[in-house]
Amino acid sequence: MLRGILLTLQIGIISWIIALFAGILIGTFRTFPWRPLRVVGTAYVEIFRNIPLLVQLFFWYYAIPPLVGQWLNRMHNLGYYCAIFGLGIYTASRVAEHVRSGLNTVPTGQRFAGLSTGLSQLQLYRHVIIPYAIRVMIPPLTTEFLTVFKNSALAMTIGVLELTGMADRINARTWHGLESTTGAIAGYLIIGLSIITLMSLVESKLRIPGLIKR
């Protein structure tokens, strides 16, 4: 069971890192004043958000390896890597949406103000828009961070023995399905509570004096 928790944490955190990087990039694309970038961003979000995660994982795990070559199939941890990759780029599409709406909350006047002092587009994003938008984005991203751990449970369907997979394995061996799933539920609650505590700390640290807390 403890090994399961560890694996859940591992999958959750690594996918989250992937999701953050890709999501911020794609979300920013969608606010750029250049159409092709916006189209790429929108297409990415619509595709990955509108296909069930389970189907995406199956796609990466079952459909892709035969295309790439048999050596992939022999790989020991294929399910593990597929889970991290699949969960990461799926979550990225959701992160991208939060990033986009966060960036859009920055008033146009702020852009004008930055540009009127001679900042370039890049400097504008780096020093004015992103630092402001990040603070707006933290609450929805915290929810998303929690969701990553919950979604990591799906990794069990492609043979990864994380927390839920472990519960299922115990059930198969001992027929104590109710007990083992109840134990897994407790595991997720502990992870969830720790994240909420951690993020409220981060939030209070980044709080802007004088600005109303949302």
Binding site: L146, F149, K150, N151, S152, A153, L154, M156, T164, A167, D168, N171, G177, L178, T181, T182, A184, I185, Y188, L189, G192, L193
Partner: peptide
């Protein structure tokens, strides 16, 4: 808050196991 913090897949399993009881 309890239900929202656990994965759906676990709820599915849990119901599946506890409903017969």
């Amino acid at each position: 808050n309890f239900i929202r913090n656990i994965p759906l897949i676990l709820v599915v399993f849990w119901v599946y196991f506890s409903l017969p009881l």
